[in-house]
């Protein structure tokens, strides 16, 4: 999945592909008598086999959207389908084809790790003879083979999360929903979870994940929908979202030995430079941010040449490529929630 940030893995197109794995149209959810809806006319479609990320600040409506899709929240209006099944019209059928990894661990602490998987399979009608073998296979895949008889209380956060993912897969769902899958995990556990998600996508399971972690979205998702105040602000591949940002890449320069006006004039004259900002403030050295139209690396040499011509000495160069975080901040603002 090294190229997952660009496009979908190429697959032979069949008529089957026409129907999205998940479809949300004009979805509205208003809790009680609150004036502002949690989800306010959201629409998007997820293709089969895709990893789709819903990215947004806390309270943006991501979890509510997943709640509607997983039959735990009733919609106010609009339409939501999973694998072609309308989740409000036929929640029972929808539950059979979707798997859920919730934001908060909800493992059954009256059962051990294997029991959680085996009974989940029983709820979903997996034949008795296959349950245990399937559970052991998934425990193995999730690196929990030695924890089969451990009580969930004694698992670490990462182990519990892996067990929850294993549980969500016991009934072979067509769409797996992961709500904030790596919140609170240490870096190793995060990486492990990321690898498993990538593996799932490669095996053809459609994955819908919510996150407020830009790096996670950029790394895992084929496409990302940025949501705020219950509305969709942007929807594209992470790289396309970044490419659409105005301003593009930056070069930060720390230097001495020339006055700012001269420097700005010289740098501005270089082709492919969108602008120069003076960020010196109180610092003793001059500090400039050069915004480039294209990639920062491409104009670095001429910019440094222009600086040398002005008689300045550069002490530090810092190249900044925009990230999904910049897109996110650009769309949702800097204010704290």
């Amino acid at each position: 999945m090294s190229s997952q940030t660009t496009t979908l893995p190429a697959r032979p197109a069949t008529a089957d592909d026409a129907e999205p794995a998940v479809e949300v149209a004009d979805l509205v959810k208003r809790y009680g008598r609150s004036s502002r809806p949690a989800v306010d006319g959201l629409s998007f479609a997820v293709r089969r086999g895709e990893v789709f990320g819903l990215l947004g600040p806390n309270g943006a409506g991501k979890t509510t959207t997943v709640g509607v899709l997983t039959t735990r929240v009733t919609k106010t209006s609009g339409r939501a389908t999973v694998a072609g099944i309308d989740v409000s019209a036929d929640p029972v059928a929808a539950r059979a084809v979707l798997g859920v990894v919730p934001q908060r661990p909800n493992l059954d602490r009256s059962l051990d790790a294997r029991g959680n998987l085996v009974w989940h399979a029983a709820y979903h009608g997996v034949p008795r003879a296959r349950r245990r073998a399937l559970a052991d296979e998934l425990l193995e895949r999730m690196g929990l083979a030695d924890k089969a008889t451990t009580n969930p209380d004694e698992l670490s956060g990462g182990q519990a999360q892996r067990l929850i993912i294993a549980r969500g897969l016991m009934h072979d769902p067509r769409v797996l929903f992961l709500d904030e899958p790596s919140t609170g995990l240490d870096p190793q556990a995060r990486l492990f979870v990321h690898d498993r998600v990538a593996e799932l996508a490669a095996s053809g399971v459609t994955v819908v994940l919510t996150t407020h972690d830009m790096d996670e979205a950029a790394k895992l998702a084929d496409r990302v929908g940025i949501v705020d105040h219950g509305r969709l602000l942007a929807l594209d591949t992470p790289s396309a979202l970044v490419a659409a940002l105005p301003g593009e890449a930056t070069i930060d320069l720390t230097l001495t030995g020339a006055d700012v006006a001269t420097l700005r004039g010289r740098i501005d004259a270089v082709r492919g430079i969108a602008g120069v900002e003076d960020l010196t403030g109180e610092r003793p050295d001059t500090h400039l941010r050069v915004r480039c139209d294209g990639e920062a690396g491409a104009v670095l040499a001429p910019v440094l040449g222009a600086v040398a011509d002005a008689g300045a000495t550069v002490s530090e160069v810092d190249l900044g490529e925009p990230t999904l975080e910049d897109v996110f901040i650009d769309l949702t603002g800097r204010g704290l929630r």
Partner: peptide, 30 residues
């Protein structure tokens, strides 16, 4: 976890195990 290219999984498949079996599963757990 079958590959999606296998026999096209069309339209809503049979709605899972039937509610009777799910009910017995939940009761069996308790």
């Amino acid at each position: 976890m079958s590959a999606p290219t296998a026999a096209p999984r069309t339209a809503p498949r049979q709605a899972g195990p039937g509610q009777g079996r799910a009910f017995l599963g939940v009761l069996g757990r308790d």
